[in-house]
Design a protein around this nucleic acid. Structure first.
Lengths: 230, 230
DNA sequence: ACATCGCCTATTGTTGACAATCTACACTCT
DNA sequence: AGAGTGTAGATTGTCAACAATAGGCGATGT
């Protein structure tokens, strides 16, 4: 049962998915400006492939909400408004609260394993905070939350959250806002970890709500309006 | 501000999305058997189009989880196991509970509007129950829940739930289980509606949990094991 | 009789070319 | 001068042909 069927299918994943993964990473890192059009030929060339596979990858990213497609005009990098930020964080709250409940009901073993992973992420985060590496901090921030949700083992919940994580990273790009309160960032995540380890159900849920609500405030106050996503 | 830019872009939506929508409907209605391979050329011909646009549509449905893709072998209709059913319903619970909270916080107007929509759906449902039209009942069942979530106005939450709705309808197909307890079905939904209208926060959340938990039991007891989704 | 090897067909993955559409710019007319 | 129109360029949408891979089937040898 160690490797029932996945014993090295060498690049067994579909090409479009591989391209989508790489392109997604480029987008959330700001390689394309919000609102910018994606030139199919140019990007296809960049990936050393043809327009066919690339267009398939674009479909995926459109569905994830990172890109928007206008018929006969092409696909563009999504511009996120403050309304979008609120939506995204509302869904994140829903997913994380559900994950909290599931984890608490799942038993100590799952919680222990999850805590171990989260602990390492916080350690990395502290290191990058020391040198103010924003890009890495944003990545680790979302990795923390994604790992938290991943602890449930619910593949669908994880998929949903990964999409939300990508959108969240776009928020930071789109709204051109830096991480405020660098020092409390590590502290807040440590607090979440502690509450999980202590199996403090109510406390964890409250902490998650506050953590996300604060983030929304940080993202919305800096720029009160940033266009309408319609 | 009535129609700033969307004043009739006649079929403004991308082709791949249109094909995906139609194909999704066919799949959830059982036009393809679970595990069956989708022949690209054949289906493309059916839609009077080429393989290119069809493949783009397939990418979407793969990401939604209705299809699974194996490199160099093609895409197949997903076979859902009981583990998948539990996952799907866990996420549904998370979304619906979040929707409940949002609606309750949103104020009476939103609740009133939502209730009106739900009332009509229940009426339709009762009609189709009278003649035992399973296909229509399944559709209306999911339409009820989707409309409930739609009441929040959170487009991302709605998108997520629409995907879950499609997967749920596949559960019924994949597990080849009929709706049990036809009579209580209308009654349960009416109960949810009443609790929403009464703004009984706690009561609604409890009712949602029970409603979904019952559904899981109905879907899992009939067939205790139905393959492994890996 | 069974296992193994090699071919063969069907289907997917990819590519390049062609057609349709939109945007931008220059030109003309009032 | 300003508004409207026509044209040109670029980009997307679509298609059909080519290449590559996987699984099935029969032949062959032990």
């Amino acid at each position: 049962m160690a490797a029932p069927e996945g014993l090295f299918v060498l690049e067994g994943r579909p090409t479009a998915q591989l391209i989508a993964d790489q392109l997604r990473e480029q987008i959330v890192q700001g390689a394309f400006r919000p609102g910018q059009q994606i030139n199919e030929s140019a990007v296809a060339g960049q990936f050393r492939t043809s327009r066919g596979p690339l267009r398939e990858a674009l479909q995926r990213l459109c569905q994830e909400g990172l890109l928007v497609s206008h018929r006969n005009r092409g696909v563009f990098v999504t511009e996120l408004s403050t309304a979008d930020v609120k939506e995204i964080y509302a869904v994140r709250e829903a997913v994380e609260l559900a994950a909290s409940t599931t984890l608490m009901d799942a038993g100590q073993d799952l919680i222990r394993d999850t805590c171990r992973v989260l602990k390492d992420i916080i350690r990395d985060m502290a290191k990058h905070v020391a040198v103010s590496d924003w890009q890495a901090i944003a990545r680790l921030d979302m990795q923390f939350h994604t790992s938290f949700v991943a602890g449930t083992g619910n593949t669908r919940l994880i998929r949903i959250y990964e999409t939300l994580a990508a959108e969240t990273r776009m928020c930071i790009l789109s709204l051109e806002v830096a991480y405020p309160r660098l020092d409390v960032l590590v502290q807040e995540h440590q607090n979440l970890l502690d509450l999980l380890e202590a199996e403090d159900r109510k406390g964890l849920q409250q902490a998650v709500k506050r953590h996300l609500q604060k983030a929304v405030e940080d993202l919305t106050v800096t720029r009160q309006d940033n266009g309408i996503s319609a």
